[in-house]
């Protein structure tokens, strides 16, 4: 111990600094694979899209399909529901979005059935707007899936989707 006390390591020493720096880079590079392995893997990423047959859905009905492990609501809206969604003054909304932007084809509303508060699945035809209501913490959504009352911060998300033909929607 006596020897080392006399000559403490000189921290400005170039070779020690260079070694430490190179070592840090190496450790960083080695750690990345250990972190990245938890990200979605190649087989999960490949399942990004799903096709849904909507030919059997009557006006007023909705179906729920699984996409990327989450429920997607596909609702065929009635005339009244469309009207009530489109007549809302945007100023009243917590998260202002036009129904025209959320449902390109007004008859079909496609959205992730996940409450934007903490991820529960809202119940259909319930709540103050007779549309969707999340039972976990009482968020009320309107017939366009927009948040109107309760703790959720944003409207339910609309995924990327296209109508492949009149009876098939491709989500993702």
């Amino acid at each position: 111990m006596s020897e080392s006390d006399k000559k403490k390591p000189n921290r400005r020493d170039f070779i020690l600094t260079a070694t430490t720096a190179a070592g840090a880079v190496g450790v960083g590079a080695a750690v990345w694979p250990l972190i990245d392995q938890m990200n979605p893997d190649a087989s999960v990423k490949a399942l990004a899209s799903t096709e849904v047959d909507i030919s059997g859905v009557e006006p007023g009905q909705s179906i729920t399909v699984l996409w990327r492990g989450k429920p997607v609501f596909i609702k065929r809206r009635t005339k009244e529901e469309i009207d009530s969604a489109r007549s809302v003054d945007l100023k009243e909304l917590k998260h202002p979005e036009k129904d025209e932007d959320r449902a390109k084809n007004p008859e079909w509303l496609v959205m992730l059935g996940v409450c934007t508060h903490l991820g529960c699945v809202p119940l259909a035809d319930k709540g103050d707007y007779n549309a969707w209501f999340c039972p976990c913490h009482g968020s009320h959504y309107d017939t366009s899936g927009r948040i109107r009352k309760g703790p959720a911060p944003t409207n339910m998300e609309v995924p990327k989707y296209v109508f492949v033909n009149n009876t098939t929607i491709k989500i993702g």
Partner: peptide, 25 residues
């Protein structure tokens, strides 16, 4: 390549550190 480079760096660091006592004994 990285391991060879860092081995060389560590080797010289080791020489440097051990020289503190090798010259002093």
């Amino acid at each position: 390549i990285y391991l060879i480079i860092i081995s060389i760096l560590v080797y010289f660091s080791m020489k440097k550190i051990w020289s503190r006592i090798e010259s002093k004994v």
